[in-house]
């Protein structure tokens, strides 16, 4: 009996071993080629414009929107937040460096000391706490305004997530990747079901964007969030959107900045390496 068990076990091991895990570089290449072949007319950077890269009519509407972009006020608010000193006289520059245009491109990244993925939002609140200030809420409001400003300053730079050759970092990447491809919730849907299998198709009236370029423009100003907010502030972070897409499929959303979402962001942003940062964006 024991023999059979060990035999079975080793067979299982062999099976998982032969199902070799592809490297992040290989994943990235396949991911990009897939979308480029599927949408041959779309320039690489244009994938960062989501649905507007895929549909002429939506694009026209969006372009007229961009003439007076509703996120502009929030970029200004973010600049104010950046420039306003803390009670101790220091400011965000003491944590992030003097040049606000050099911040966004560093995130997300693997921190070898704490052995976890660090996000821009995580470091914003860390900075506040270290300076005796009250941390911001995670999903909207000031954290998104500051993010909008830092994104705006970084426009035109390219996403450059580094996955170091550290088994723990690879594990985090793999967890994020698995998250993107695993079906979940009562509706049994994976992120990839919608954003890999069916981009360019419509769910009800909404046009599905490609997984490629999905993070380049965050934080984002969404008309839907604007409508739901008493003060008309439609800005929100990437993790706010993750929670929305999880809830829609009737899975319990994870907390913003949970390990799950940070690792998802790590994978998800890495998949857009080389694309232009175009934050903040406007979406329906």
């Amino acid at each position: 009996m024991k023999k059979i068990l060990t035999l079975l076990l080793s067979a299982g091991l062999v099976a998982t071993a032969t199902q070799a895990v592809s490297s992040p570089e290989e994943d990235l290449e396949k991911f990009r080629i897939y979308y480029e072949q599927r949408f041959p007319g779309v320039q690489l950077d244009d994938f960062g414009n989501g649905p507007y890269a895929l549909d002429v009519n939506k694009r026209l509407q969006w372009e007229s929107m961009e003439e007076f972009p509703p996120y502009e006020d929030y970029v200004d608010k973010g600049r104010e937040i950046w420039e306003t000193p803390f009670k101790n006289g220091k400011s965000f520059a003491s944590c992030f460096g003097k040049d606000p245009s050099k911040v966004r491109v560093k995130y997300p990244h693997w921190d070898s000391k704490t052995q976890q993925v660090v996000t821009l939002e995580g470091d914003i609140n860390k900075c506040l706490k270290e300076n005796g200030e009250k941390p911001f809420g995670w999903k909207k409001g000031k954290i998104a305004h500051l993010g909008a400003f830092l994104g705006y300053e970084a426009r035109g730079q390219r996403i450059n997530v580094v996955i170091p050759d550290d088994p723990k970092a690879l594990e985090a990447y793999e967890e994020g990747k698995h998250f993107y491809y695993a079906k979940r919730g009562q509706l049994n849907l994976a992120c990839a079901d919608c954003h890999v299998q069916y981009p360019g198709h419509r769910v009800r009236g909404q046009l599905l964007s490609t997984g490629l370029g999905q993070t380049t423009h965050f934080p984002v100003f969404r008309a839907k969030w604007q409508k739901a907010a008493a003060n008309g502030d439609g800005m929100g972070t990437l993790h706010r959107r993750y929670g929305g897409c999880n809830g829609q499929v009737r899975a319990r959303p994870f907390k913003a900045q949970s390990r799950q979402y940070r690792n998802l962001e790590f994978f998800h942003t890495y998949m857009s390496n080389g694309l232009e940062i175009n934050a903040p964006g406007y979406r329906e």
Partner: peptide, 13 residues
């Protein structure tokens, strides 16, 4: 059960 069934979910292009 779903999470168990999806354990090996990954890219398929």
């Amino acid at each position: 059960k779903q999470a168990m069934e999806q354990k090996n979910a990954g890219p398929r292009f």
